[in-house]
């Protein structure tokens, strides 16, 4: 009789063998010391790994209340950065524009009003909300920049 394959040894120690397979293994183990050693070694190694994986859970913590809104976490980091970048670029452009105007003509004033869009969707994270930047110059002209 040939020796037991590793796969069958695994099933045997995990009690996943069919009754026919179990009989076969038991019969073989009665006269094969080599396989007995293999079964014992695999049993111990499996336990060691199970124990090590379980050790990763040091405590469970408490169950937080469920909020059916997507949390703004690291995953949205990139999108958020793009929006911040765009905002920063807009502001920078405005400042440059203002400086140029100041140098060439009389002082020129603008106001920047930055708001979240009129339709706030509570089910969307902040990064998915429409953002509107209103630029109001001293003549009262309003330029609306919409970031979607």
């Amino acid at each position: 009789m040939t020796c037991i394959k590793p796969e069958l040894i695994q099933k045997y120690i995990d009690r996943e063998t069919t009754s026919a397979e179990s009989e076969l293994v038991d019969a073989h183990l009665k006269h094969c010391e080599d396989c007995c050693r293999k079964v014992e070694a695999r049993k111990q190694f499996s336990q060691l790994i199970i124990h090590s994986v379980n050790h990763l859970v040091k405590d469970h913590g408490s169950i937080p209340a469920f909020a059916p809104v997507k949390k703004v976490s690291g995953r949205f980091f990139v999108k958020r950065r793009i929006i911040y970048g765009l905002s920063a670029a807009c502001v920078l452009l405005l400042i440059m524009f203002t400086v140029i105007r100041t140098r060439t003509r009389e002082p020129w004033h603008v106001s920047i009003v930055n708001t979240i869009g009129p339709q706030v969707d509570a089910n969307k994270p902040i990064t998915k909300q429409d953002m509107i930047i209103n630029i109001i110059d001293q003549d009262g002209n309003v330029t609306e920049l919409k970031l979607e």
């Binding site: 796969e7 069958l8 695999r42």
Partner: peptide, 27 residues
């Protein structure tokens, strides 16, 4: 159980024992 592992992971039920054995050997 192997059946539960198969259902959650998508590994074929017949292959679970072999897969575990192979990963343990690798480890």
């Amino acid at each position: 159980s192997y059946k539960e592992i198969s259902e959650a992971s998508g590994v074929k039920f017949q292959s679970v024992g072999k897969t575990i054995s192979r990963i343990l050997e690798k480890l």
